[in-house]
Amino acid sequence: MADVEAADASHEPQSRHVVYCGVCTLPPEYCEFGGTVKKCQEWLKKNNSTMYERLWSEDALAAATSSLSLDAQKRAEKDAHKKALKAEAAEAKQAATIASSKVIIKRVERNKRKFVTTVTGLENFGLENKKVAKDLGKKFATGASVTKVPSGGEEIVVQGDVSEEIEEFFLEKFPVIPEDNIELVEDKKKKGSGAGG
């Protein structure tokens, strides 16, 4: 990795290249305010040890905290702790929603031997229906649109029976979705429309 502080003013491109933390995306010196300090530290240690030394060595920490009054230090610490807890909670919550939510791929009969495929429940995995619909349409060369469901929420409607292909496509393209959380539904009025939310 290129040295961050390398002052390359004399060379052709004059911009500095700044390293950003891979965990919280802030410049590493601001990681302490990000709420995921532990992870950031580990990341930096692994990826840029010189910088780690500069920021997290004991001298540096001592120098950093010495300028604050004790009271302010305590408050800052408390605040940081609270923030960390919050970040942790948010993470846990997200993991829980991912674990509990399902993507439902449903084959709906449209006209005797013609089918459309609907997909619901992608929002919980942080995917955007509109974008996924576009991708699906491109992939299968069919119409794919986002429609509102009467029960609230949205679903993607893809023309043609492509339920299995969609499953494969999702598994390959969106690793956030665990295989067990994809459900294929065949018939019309069985279940599922409520789960998408």
């Binding site: 004059q14 911009s15 500095r16 305010f33 300028s67 604050l68």
Partner: peptide, 22 residues
């Protein structure tokens, strides 16, 4: 700003204020 830090009028805040700004 990080790429060209010297080109913009700047101020500096003390350490205690960082967390509020962020």
């Amino acid at each position: 700003v990080h790429r060209f830090p010297t080109c913009f009028p700047s101020l500096r805040i003390d350490r205690g204020a960082i967390r509020f700004v962020l």
